[in-house]
């Protein structure tokens, strides 16, 4: 039982490491705040949520596990709120999103640039 829990926690921690490193790479790779926010949410949301699940599996007492569950439920609300505040600040200050050069775009089929 303990071994199974530890192996599952190891799986979630490994995915947290993978997504966290991906998010940090994206934070330095993309040139504008919107794309950095998208890539940063990979590190700031997915990796942290995986860490929470792993910590929940490794917690030994009921009081600790219940608090981790409550933190996870509030994280579902609080993580998008922070991203939204920053994105809304960028949008209201008139920042236009970056467009990659045509050869590197993925699967865009329409002709006109403006919706």
């Amino acid at each position: 039982m303990t071994l199974a829990r530890e192996l599952l926690a190891l799986l979630f921690f490994a995915s947290a490491v993978i997504f966290g490193i991906g998010g940090i790479i994206g934070l330095f790779r993309f040139p504008d705040p919107y794309s950095r926010l998208q890539a940063g949410s990979l590190c700031g949301t997915t990796a942290i949520f995986s860490i929470f699940i792993g910590a929940l599996l490794l917690s030994t007492s009921l009081a600790v596990a219940a608090r981790v569950v409550v933190i996870m439920i509030f994280f579902l609300v609080s993580a998008p709120t922070g991203s939204h505040i920053v994105a809304r600040f960028a949008w209201n200050s008139g920042l236009q999103p970056w467009k990659p050069p045509l050869s590197r775009r993925s699967g865009y089929t329409d002709r006109q640039d403006e919706p």
């Binding site: 934070l27 705040p33 590190c43 700031g44 929470f52 922070g82 920053v86």
Partner: peptide
Amino acid sequence: SADRLVALTVLSSLVLG
């Protein structure tokens, strides 16, 4: 300043973890 705010949101999530 928007880039700095983006880094700050990720930083605050990491502190929570």
